[in-house]
Deep mutational scan, measured.
Amino acid sequence: MSIQHFRVALIPFFAAFCLPVFAHPETLVKVKDAEDQLGARVGYIELDLNSGKILESFRPEERFPMMSTFKVLLCGAVLSRVDAGQEQLGRRIHYSQNDLVEYSPVTEKHLTDGMTVRELCSAAITMSDNTAANLLLTTIGGPKELTAFLHNMGDHVTRLDRWEPELNEAIPNDERDTTMPAAMATTLRKLLTGELLTLASRQQLIDWMEADKVAGPLLRSALPAGWFIADKSGAGERGSRGIIAALGPDGKPSRIVVIYTTGSQATMDERNRQIAEIGASLIKHW
């Protein structure tokens, strides 16, 4: 067993022997301040990774656009098919120029040779490549099948209805392509620590998230040296922004954090800054 596999296998073990965790309302004060600064709703939840206990939450059962955070769930569904012998990570998928959609920095470079399922998941999570996500959605049967996968996990809230990039439209009061912070946090925890996926697939999923290259201005910008984070960000229309993450000190994750916002007129930089400040408060009061 590799060191990384050992780390993920012992996530519940280490967490069980940690000192009790206590909620700190100071972080919620910052979440509410972010709402004021952005002029928009902000949803927040913080779960203990081992027990699933909610440590703090704000608007945990209000719907927010998922945006690209759905790509972690998508690759979880792909990995479940791999575990069941219905898919192979090494299978190569070929596609054409007509398949390319807006923001496809990886797939646009491989029109000639195609990409493997493993490479597509890596591109979808680490670079948020939209064509990679659409190609992977095709392998599982489309958005409705991802929703069905989530329902089978016990998540009857999260739903995907459309493809990239239309799913980022974020129309107010439109339930399409949305989740709730509580539902997303619980589902992410199941994917990373539950028995739904094999140990190898859980490790692969967290490795992809740990290698995320496009979430630097968010929670990662607030992390002290030595902290662990595996995350996936999302951005959408109407001032929408979000991030889902597993993080913790001492090089291992111990909490799940989900943050979503929508309806702001603020710039992307300002949305990023507010999420980073929430992260800084979380870490300060850990």
Rank of each mutant, 00 (worst) to 15 (best):
S128R: 03
E145N: 00
H110W: 15
L196Q: 12
S201F: 14
L192Y: 05
T139C: 05
E46L: 08
S122Y: 12
L55W: 01
I244E: 10
G236H: 10
M268K: 10
L135M: 05
R202M: 03
Y103H: 06
N173V: 06
E195D: 03
I229G: 02
E119R: 13
G194P: 06
G248F: 06
S201I: 10
G39R: 14
D207C: 10
Q97M: 03
Q37C: 11
G279L: 07
R162Y: 04
A280E: 01
V29C: 14
R91S: 03
R202D: 09
Y103A: 00
M184I: 01
S122T: 09
T193K: 10
L218K: 07
G43T: 06
A235R: 11
H151V: 04
K284N: 05
G248T: 08
G194M: 08
L111N: 00
V214A: 05
V106L: 11
A266C: 15
E46Y: 09
E195A: 05
P253K: 09
L120P: 01
I283N: 10
S104W: 11
M180V: 00
M153V: 14
G216Q: 13
M184V: 08
L197Y: 09
D83T: 05
K53T: 02
T267E: 10
P181G: 11
R63N: 00
L197K: 12
K252E: 02
R273W: 07
L188W: 04
S96R: 05
G226K: 10
S80D: 14
C121P: 09
E175A: 01
A77I: 05
V29R: 09
L199M: 05
T193D: 12
V82G: 07
E175V: 03
C75P: 09
G234E: 05
T267K: 04
I278V: 14
K53H: 01
L38P: 08
M209V: 13
I256H: 02
A123C: 00
G242V: 04
T131E: 13
R159G: 11
S57L: 12
G154Q: 03
P217Q: 05
A280N: 00
T69Y: 05
Q265K: 11
P105E: 11
G154N: 10
A40R: 01
A40V: 06
E277G: 14
M153G: 13
K252D: 15
K32A: 07
R41M: 02
T112W: 03
G234D: 11
V78L: 10
R241L: 07
A185W: 07
R59T: 04
T158W: 09
T193H: 11
S80E: 15
R202S: 06
E46W: 09
V157I: 06
T262C: 08
D99A: 13
L100C: 12
A245R: 08
D48P: 00
I229H: 03
P249I: 07
P143W: 14
D129A: 06
I54V: 04
G279T: 08
S68P: 09
M180H: 00
L219K: 05
L247T: 02
A211G: 04
V31N: 00
R92F: 00
T261M: 07
P249A: 10
A266W: 15
E61D: 05
I244G: 10
L188S: 10
Q265I: 15
A280R: 07
M209Q: 13
P172M: 11
A200K: 02
D177E: 12
F70G: 05
A280G: 01
E237V: 11
E166M: 02
G236K: 00
F58I: 13
E175I: 05
I243D: 10
S122H: 13
N134A: 07
I140W: 14
W208T: 05
A183E: 06
I93L: 14
A182C: 12
L167E: 08
Y103G: 02
P60N: 11
A280M: 02
G52C: 02
R202Q: 08
L73I: 10
S201A: 14
P172N: 08
Q203K: 13
N173G: 07
L160V: 07
A211R: 03
D83K: 02
A215D: 15
K109Q: 12
V31L: 02
L100T: 12
L74V: 10
V258Q: 13
D212M: 15
L120Q: 00
N130A: 02
S233I: 08
K30S: 14
V214R: 04
E277V: 14
M180D: 00
N152Q: 03
A215P: 10
